[in-house]
Structures are given as C-alpha cells and as structure tokens.
Simulated assay, not measured.
Amino acid sequence: MSRVLVLDVDGTLVDTNYHHAVAWFRAFRSCDVTVPIWRIHRAIGMGGDQLVPTVAGQEVEDRFGDTVRDKWKEEADAVLGEICAIEGARELLEAARDAGYTVVLASSGKPDHVDKYLDLLDARELAKDWTTSGDVSETKPEPNLIEVALEKAGDNEAVVVGDSVWDCEAARRIGLPSVAVRTGGFGEQELRDSGASRVYEDLHQLRADLPNLPTGKPEN
C-alpha cells in the first residue's frame, strides 16, 4: 500500500492563522475577557476545546467557553471570504498524488469552513479523504485527528505535515514522524523541539523534498 501524507489544512494549505487569532480575540472581548493576540497566536493549531483554557484559564473556560467558541465561529465566518490558498498549495497536492502518496487532509475545522477550503484548493479530486471537527472527540495536541485520518486512508504508514507546534506534538504523541512548514508563523527551532524532523520555509521547498520524507507507523 502507498504511504500516507496526513496534511494539515489551516496555516499549512490556507492562510488562516492570523484571521483565526483576531477572531478569537474578538470572541473573548465579547465576554469582556482580553487575551493578547500574540498569546492567542501561540495556540493557533489547537482546537477550540483546548485553546480557550490554554490562553485564558480554566475559570474563563468554565464561565464562557461555549459562548466564546460560538462567537469565534461568527467572527471567523465573517472573514471566510478573505481566506486565500498559500502559495504552492495546489501544486503540493498534485505532486503528492503523483509521488504515490495517499493524501488525507487533516482538519479540525468546522465542516462549512473545510468545504470552503476544499473548493479554494480544488482538492476534492486530489485527496483520498478529509476530516472536520465532526470527526474528532479531542483536538490537537491530542492525536485523535491523526488517528481518524489514518482510518480514512486505510493504511498507517504515514508522515504528518503541519505548520504549528501542535501538529508536531500530536504526531509525536502517536509515534509518527512529522515535518513542518513555517507558513503558520512558528519558528524553526520550536517546531523541531516539538518533534519536526525537517522544517521548510515554504510549500515549494516541501514539494521538492516529497520523495525523501520520513514515514513510520504509530506506536501501539
């Protein structure tokens, strides 16, 4: 069977990280909670279930968690039309297919957001399958999303590709190799410290190295 490319979407294929950070900032502010945007950015890549208590504390989660997440969705919906594909995203998907990878797009985004990204990337014909928030019970840095992606791929020899420390940490927790691109705004060393074996400046560099990516199987 072919190797699996578990490919993150937000921040890796579509340029959303800073839109999400501002949307979370506004969502918190709607509950009279102010969290610095730089701190929110450091948590982008987590799902909302993890992000709220991480950046604002358990008390805010207990009092306002669901309200903040609902408001974030409203704010993110409002800027969805501004989202652009990251340069080289479509070419990466085509090259991965041509290199024999089974591509699964691993997103914990809302289903309507993921639909938008699939259309933006014209990716439905290039990916074997994709995930949304409806597929997972726990989001990154927990590895549930990767486990679901492997199930959808029908194989477990894989490499995880992402843009955040949380992608790399999720892969490390399940024992899979990961590589990262710097398109999400995280630094090279912190990505390596979180488990990335290689870090690329952009998707063009990653595409050129597709034949050499490490693959492995999850630890049981």
Rank of each mutant, 00 (worst) to 15 (best):
K128Y: 14
K110H: 13
E125F: 05
D122I: 04
A127W: 01
V103M: 12
K128R: 15
D129S: 13
V104M: 07
V104F: 02
L126R: 14
G109H: 07
S108T: 15
G109N: 12
V114H: 01
T131K: 14
A123T: 01
G100L: 12
L105D: 14
W130K: 12
V114N: 05
P111A: 06
D122P: 02
L126W: 05
K128I: 14
W130Q: 11
W130I: 11
E125S: 09
T102V: 15
A106V: 04
A123R: 08
D122E: 15
L120A: 02
T131G: 15
R124K: 15
D129M: 03
G109M: 11
P111V: 05
A127I: 05
L126C: 12
G100Q: 12
A123K: 03
W130G: 13
K116N: 14
D115V: 05
D129Y: 03
T102I: 15
D119F: 00
Y101T: 14
L126P: 15
L121M: 06
E125M: 07
R124T: 03
T102K: 07
L105R: 11
D115N: 11
G100S: 09
A106R: 05
V103I: 15
H113E: 11
T102F: 10
V114W: 00
L121V: 00
S107H: 09
K110E: 15
D112R: 01
V114S: 00
D129G: 14
R124F: 08
D122Y: 04
A123G: 06
Y101M: 04
P111Q: 04
Y101G: 13
Y117E: 10
Y101E: 13
W130Y: 15
T102H: 06
T132S: 14
L105F: 08
D119E: 01
A106F: 11
V104W: 12
H113L: 02
A106D: 08
V114G: 01
T132C: 09
S107A: 12
Y117W: 13
L105C: 09
L120G: 09
V103F: 11
A123V: 00
V114I: 01
P111T: 01
K110D: 09
A106Y: 04
D119H: 04
L118P: 06
Y101F: 15
K116T: 14
H113S: 12
L120M: 10
V103P: 14
D122W: 02
L118W: 08
T132M: 07
L118F: 01
D129E: 12
D129N: 05
S107T: 07
K116L: 04
L105Q: 12
W130M: 13
T102R: 08
Y101P: 07
A127P: 14
